[in-house]
Design a protein around this nucleic acid. Sequence first.
DNA 1: CTGTTAGCGCCTTCAG
DNA 2: CTGAAGGCGCTAACAG
Lengths: 339, 339
Amino acid sequence: MKITLKTIADEAGLSVTTVSRALAGYDDVNEATRQRVMEIAERLGYQPNLTARHLRSKQTSTIGMVIPRTAYFADSFFMELLAGVGRQASAHGYDLLLSVQPPGDEELAAYRRMVAGSRVDGIVLARVLRHDPRIAYLQQANHPFVSFGRSETSDYPYIDVDGARGMRRLVQHLAENGHRRIAIILSPWELAFTTTRYEGYLEGLDAIGVQPDEAYVAEGDLTQQGGRDAAARMLALPEPPTAIIACNDLMAFGVMEAVEQRGLRVGHAVAVAGFDDVPAAAHAIPPLTTLRQPIYAIGCQMVDMLVRLLRGETLEHAHVLIEPELMVRASSGPQPAQA
Amino acid sequence: MKITLKTIADEAGLSVTTVSRALAGYDDVNEATRQRVMEIAERLGYQPNLTARHLRSKQTSTIGMVIPRTAYFADSFFMELLAGVGRQASAHGYDLLLSVQPPGDEELAAYRRMVAGSRVDGIVLARVLRHDPRIAYLQQANHPFVSFGRSETSDYPYIDVDGARGMRRLVQHLAENGHRRIAIILSPWELAFTTTRYEGYLEGLDAIGVQPDEAYVAEGDLTQQGGRDAAARMLALPEPPTAIIACNDLMAFGVMEAVEQRGLRVGHAVAVAGFDDVPAAAHAIPPLTTLRQPIYAIGCQMVDMLVRLLRGETLEHAHVLIEPELMVRASSGPQPAQA
DNA sequence: CTGTTAGCGCCTTCAG
DNA sequence: CTGAAGGCGCTAACAG
């Protein structure tokens, strides 16, 4: 038998209203009455029905997050983000509603259920697309959200890693190591960050006085396999690149495979670099040079922003740009680099 | 403005009831009427208020999970479990409600909110204690749940890794490599699995005809630091162990540190083994011999069990025991082992 | 085939 | 200081 306000009211010979107010700490309740109510509630182990409360109050103290069930779920990106989001949500007294969905229509439907179904107060989302239907929906529904990643076409609160800056820095680093033929394996174009990273790459080349070469630009699918295939094609060119940048670490691991399959040594004949700094990057052989995204911290910060939004505060900094940290490791030789 | 059944009812000149039934697909609605209702709902982008529906139906299609915010959260245990649980919950059409809490009273309170607050249909929990107040609560509240781990004192549906069997196997492996002085660094006693693993260790020693020695048994705290300290003490004994088992990989990494700090070589002078097979185990130097727990798969299976429970089915196998796989790697020499 | 009534459990006016 | 009434949005039983 569930204990409700009514149970307590009957037991105390009071009305539900009074019990509710006594427990809520209103000051228009006789102190003796309150004591009695509290005592009974305690004894019966009363726990308010949160569903009912949410229906009434139109607030849920819950933050929503939809996690795509994709092939490249294998990379730990969402898990780490989730850890940060969960951690900080907890700190602010929020729970997390999670929906794991195959990307596409079902994913969008999950957002609709959460938002229009009044299950969450706000939403955190990641992996922004250039034309992102989720964001279009959330904006049109006027529902609070913060995203990891930005698209140029519209304005909303986000945190993003400054991919352009990171890439410029990386190209510079490779140039300092003597490289001129620097290739890049991009992420799919529909991902918003692809554009900025590509621009950074081009700017980096420009800064070192190198003409971009179409043959040195490929589009990958973020998987290790994809990285390997793209790299294999490039290495078969008459003038193969001496350095290959991949837009994530997973593809970079694939690049390393391709380099070795050609009988070349990573960090010597060919420099390889990634993006993310997943845990495995430091343990790869050789350790992978990469641009570190502090995903856990970003998750925390997104929640901070979102909670402020939910409190009705206005964000002084609605657009946060974080510089990725260049982790120089042995994969980006040629000269022996320290781990 | 939120679109509710009433919005549609007004628009269509019908009662809320009829609209509800039309959308729910009842067959006592005029087909023409249904078409009209559906059309309007579609046009207005109607989305049922799930909170209201849950209140009415007393079902939420949501599975709850409370994640402790502990020091040893750093190990990826909960993240991997969560991935499995999320994956499979999604497959069954369930969402996940997550509450990250500091362990202790607040943790229990989170369970109470979820259960008594009617926010979830069932609960998945992990890291069972010998006397686990969460389980006591869930049993008393008669709320469906499945746990990863068992306690001997009471009966409920669980999945567990057969720690005793794993330890017997591991001790045997070490004995085959010539070890007789085999030490163990246990997890805290309050964790239910500590007992079974310790028993397996003792049985393993018995099987190879070795008398257990109290000096070779220590209690660790599951952290790397803790493993290092415990191992350092043992290695300082007049007759130090030649093999050290740690109850999780994190502590095993600490053990490896301690061994090296004493100027000894892991896998040669001293064999080291862990439990879990976290991703880093295979990449450690030398790679760590360990007992693999298929945590992701266990998460999936727990949800399968739970969903069956929620459907009112009875579980033919309410107690599932999984054998951990012994991953033999170089850390458990003496003779050079293959990775 | 459709509408009225009722209630899930809670909270917030508004009377008394 | 306390209670009655109303409604959040939805659905089920019962009339008509």
